[in-house]
Write a protein that binds this DNA or RNA. Structure first.
Lengths: 343, 343
DNA sequence: AAACCAACCGAAAAGGTTTTCTGAATGTAT
DNA sequence: ATACATTCAGAAAACCTTTTCGGTTGGTTT
């Protein structure tokens, strides 16, 4: 049964209504509500009561029109389903939500046309700035140059070095992971990673290799085993490596999914984790790490922090202070049962 | 090195600029741009060229102020990290993005105070409507009554039956899952589910029991085995059930995580899936289903569609047409290797 | 008593767009 | 040539808030 809404909303209360009810001019009402000091305490009280009674909410459109600042920012993501954008987005939303800023969310689905379309819409709404969130750490083409508001690129940096970009330090992360394994007393470390077409995969591998070299060691097999970001690849790679290099005593995996596969294969091969072999994953995806047997140590990219930092940089840029270039935030190792020191 | 931005953005072009450049009044410019028919073709062309040259974008604030409609809606979610909100959000974003509507995203983190705060901010920005997305199907308290714009509740319905709510048909989903297992020739179906405090768990269990009854059968153990939404519980429950009811030939799991645990346990017990036992999960979470051995059949709640429908209902409500009550959308079974007909 | 000061309030402009109504110009019918 | 219809352009109001500046009131100083 379809009905017409008899919506009992006559009209949202305006400052004029408040002023009339309080028996003052709109100028005074405005000053009273905004805490300006040109109004007597008693009058202010009267105005505030009136505002309360009418549940008055100042019209942000009118205010934005007047002040040139809207207190809104656009958050442009390329793929919401990807699990990297979400934490970044949360961090940003968090940092903004603390203040008086609201966030427009747009998903471009990796389509440049759609992205352009969204940018236009956002500019038309006079956002104060934009955050562009990518799903890979490979640099991406910048937005068309004539965007009249500050832009910050998060996770996926801009190709243009004069833009402001925030991303995760994947080289450092690779180093951290290997150093953690070494600190557990391991020496024969294999690195199983995903699609080599990802810059993140290459960076982590570079960091891992560097850390091994620094310790006077070499990765098992003398290389990184690239494949796909799947459990299946993890299983296959682990079996192959154990067969060819029986003395392997640690796996640094390029993702938690790969690590899950490695863990499964090791169990089936009768290798004890963490007794004989240590395993560390990447991404610290709770649902995978905490359900693994044993629970999985993993590298956390701190994406939420990344989002927060991006928001802060955007704030700064809106206030006119910019620090162009790519800022790489450190990752951290979250230790669980799959890596323990050799006793 | 921090620098002051020499931002080369003098000022966004306004309609006045366009009009001046085209040598017409702003009224004519407006009409030309908006396709009104009070303007000569040749004049319109001149205006459009001018607008193009200045890359003019009409100020949505001014327009919204005047027309009373802003073309924005608020999307209020209670937990972004939860994986149920995201697809709904995507569907809604999608449905809106197709038109001229932009979406404000707010995450209340399950905190009523923060929610209230966000609602106020959104109303201050004069959104045309609100979608409230929950992370569980348990009914939730409605927003405070004096919200002057239409509200649609998605996934988590409102406790107030006169509100508009869209959710997933979990009873029907339970029935579907069991019917699928029966159609594969199974008769001894066990139902392993998660936290019984979730309405979704109860609903699915009810649907499953009903389907068994309708087929003249009974669930293995005469009940649903509730526990937690984890792989660990799936493993433990499967072991227990196989021990106590050795003739079990199918598992309906309350989540894909539980199903993963069940699959692991069955493999370790030497029970062949899908040869001896069929397993069906719930949520159709790709990363879990497609990486399972064998790949996991699962019930998909179609959350993206749910988001889209919510957006459509909101559109309708904004246009004055409302259909109060809880609308339950059907789920569907996505068949993979873990369930095949007995040959 | 005159001049001055402080405290408070209100009028008005500005911000950019849409829409209505009036006005001008051109063309058509008588 | 006059009356009239038609087509197009522009002036102005409206939307709601903030802020500046001028004005009023009452009290204080010389």
């Amino acid at each position: 049964m379809t009905t017409q809404s008899g919506s009992a909303s006559p009209r949202a209360a305006t400052l004029t209504d408040v002023a009339r009810l309080a028996g003052v001019s709109i100028a005074t009402a405005s000053k009273a509500i905004n805490g300006r000091d040109q109004v007597k305490a008693e009058t202010r009280l009267r105005v505030l009561e009136a505002a309360e009674r009418l549940s008055f909410a100042p019209n942000a459109l009118a205010r934005g029109l007047l002040k040139g600042r809207t207190g809104t920012v656009g958050l442009l993501t390329s793929d919401l389903e990807g699990r990297f954008s979400i934490p970044v987005l949360m961090g940003a939303e968090d940092a903004f939500g603390a203040g008086r800023v609201s966030v427009f969310l747009c998903d471009a689905r990796g389509d440049a046309i759609r992205e352009q379309h969204h940018v236009r819409a956002l500019l038309s709404r006079r956002v104060d700035g934009l955050i562009v969130v990518g799903s890979r750490t490979d640099p991406r083409p910048p937005l068309s140059a004539d965007v009249p508001v500050p832009v910050v690129y998060a996770y996926a940096p801009s190709e243009d070095a004069s833009d402001v970009s925030i991303t995760a330090d994947n080289v450092g992360a690779g180093r951290l992971a290997v150093e953690h394994l070494l600190s557990c007393g391991r020496r024969r470390v294999a690195h199983v990673s995903g699609d080599p077409g990802y810059k993140a995969a290459q960076d982590r591998a570079a960091g891992a290799a560097a850390a091994m070299t620094a310790a006077g060691l070499e990765l098992v097999g003398g290389q990184t085993f690239f494949g796909s970001w799947s459990e299946g690849w993890g299983r296959g790679a682990a079996r192959m490596i154990v067969e060819q290099h029986g003395d392997v005593d640690a796996f640094f995996c390029g993702s938690d999914q790969i690590a899950r596969g490695v863990l499964d294969a090791l169990r089936e091969l009768g290798r004890d984790v963490p007794g004989e072999v240590s395993v560390i994953g990447f991404d610290n995806w709770e649902v995978l790490t905490t359900n693994a047997r044993p629970q999985l140590t993993s590298v956390d990219m701190n994406l939420e922090r990344l989002g927060r930092v991006a928001a802060q940089r955007l704030f700064a840029a809106i206030d006119g202070t910019v620090r162009p270039g790519v800022e790489e935030l450190p990752c951290r190792v979250v230790t669980r049962a799959s890596t323990v020191p050799i006793s």
